[in-house]
Nucleic acid binder design. Structure first.
Lengths: 195, 195
DNA sequence: GTTAGCATGTAAGGAGTTACATGATTTT
DNA sequence: AAAATCATGTAACTCCTTACATGCTAAC
C-alpha cells in the first residue's frame, strides 16, 4: 500500500518516452510499439486513460495548441504531453527500484529499455535478478521433466525443448551483459571521479 | 457471438491434459506449469473457477471419493476430474480451428502442445499462420526502426536487437517444422491409406 | 473525391492474479 | 512435533483489449 501499486508497465514506458521528448498520444503509441514491439503491444484504449491519469497525478502536462477557442469536444487537434518536474522525479524513483517489478516478464523489457537513465548498480542488480529468475524457471521445468519422463509425444517435447533453448539463450545474453557491466564498473572504479 | 468467445487458454489446456488422463486440480496445475512453464504460469485462483465452469458446461465430471459422507465443506479430499464425451468433442472442435486464436502469442503454445491430436492440415495452417504473424512483426518493427534511425541509446538498441534475433530464431524454427510437416504429408500422400 | 493514415477518446468486459482462508499428509 | 508440500477454494482487483464513436489531413 506504500508504493502506490497501480503502476503497470505502460506508466513507466510513457514517462520514459516523454522524458526523451514531448509527444502526442498517437506518436507515443507508435514509439511504444517499436520500442517494445517484439515483446508486447499497447492499444489506444489503454494509452489514453493512462495519459489522463498521469495528468491528474501531475506527472505530465498537456499542451493544446488551440487554446483560443472554447473548450471544444469536437474540432480535435494534437495534444502534446510533456513531463513535469514531479514526473521526472517519479520516473527516477521507478527506475531506481531494483525489485521483482523490474525483472519479472512484464516489466523487464521496459526497465531495460531505459537503462541509460538508470544507475549502474541498479542495472546490475536487475540483470542479475532477471537471470536468477530465468534460471529458477529452467531448473524447475527441467526437474519436473525429469520426474515425468514417461511418455511425452514428440510435439510436446519439441515445444519444451524450444522453450528451454530460448530461455537458455536469454540467460547467456544476460550473462554477457552482466560481464560488460562489471567490466565497466571496474574501469570507472580505478579512475575515480574523472569527469 | 457464435463461437462462445469466453474460451481462454486455460480451458483448452485443461481439456487437453484431462484428455490424456483424469486428474485432480493440484496435479493439473503442476502438469500445466511444466507443459507451458517456459511461456506462462497459471495460479489456482484461475484454475479452480475454470474447472467449475467446465463442470457446469458438462465438459468434465468430478469424482469425489468420499460420496458416503454428507456434502462436506470441510474434510477435503482429492477431486478427480475426467473428460466427458461432450468434452472430447469440444476439445476436438477447439483443436480444429486454425484461426488467430491458435497462432497469436497467447494461444500458440497450447495449441502446439496438443498437435498430436490435431489434423495434419490444421497443424500446417497454424504453423504458417504463426510464422506470418511473426514475420509481420519483424517487418513492422524493422521498418519503423529504419525510419527512426536517429539517436537511440545503446541499451535500447541492445534490447531491440535481442528481440529481433529471438523472433528470427522462432521464424527459422517454424520454417523447419513446416518443412517436416510437408515432407510427412507428401509421404502419406504417396502411399494412400496404409494403416 | 475517396481511400489511407493521423488523431482522440469512452464503455464494457475478459482473462487472469493476489491475497486470503482452511485443512490433510508427508517428510525431516 | 515442526516444516514442507499437498489440496481446495473465494473475493476483490488489475491491467489491458475490443468495439465503438468521431473527425481531420495527406496522398493518389
Amino acid at each position: 500500500m506504500s508504493t502506490r501499486k497501480g503502476a503497470g508497465v505502460l506508466e513507466l514506458a510513457v514517462l520514459g518516452l516523454l522524458h526523451e521528448s514531448p509527444m502526442h498520444g498517437y506518436e507515443l503509441r507508435k514509439r511504444l510499439n517499436t520500442l517494445l514491439g517484439m515483446f508486447r503491444a499497447f492499444s489506444y484504449g489503454s494509452l489514453y486513460p493512462c495519459l489522463k491519469q498521469l495528468l491528474v497525478q501531475g506527472l505530465i502536462t498537456e499542451d493544446r495548441p488551440d487554446e483560443d477557442a472554447r473548450t471544444l469536444p469536437s474540432g480535435r487537434s494534437k495534444i502534446v504531453y510533456k513531463l513535469t518536474a514531479e514526473g521526472k522525479e517519479h520516473l527516477q524513483r521507478l527506475l531506481s527500484e531494483a525489485g521483482p517489478a523490474a525483472w519479472e516478464d512484464e516489466g523487464f523489457g521496459v526497465h531495460f529499455a531505459f537503462f541509460a537513465h538508470t544507475h549502474a548498480d541498479v542495472r546490475l542488480r536487475i540483470l542479475e535478478g532477471r537471470r536468477s529468475r530465468l534460471e529458477e524457471r529452467l531448473e524447475s521445468v527441467r526437474s519436473a521433466l525429469a520426474r515425468t519422463r514417461e511418455r511425452v509425444d514428440s510435439y510436446t517435447l519439441e515445444l519444451q525443448n524450444h522453450g528451454l533453448e530460448s530461455v537458455e539463450r536469454d540467460v547467456r545474453w544476460l550473462t554477457e551483459l552482466i560481464g560488460r557491466e562489471r567490466a565497466q564498473a571496474d574501469q570507472t572504479a580505478q579512475q575515480p571521479q574523472e569527469l
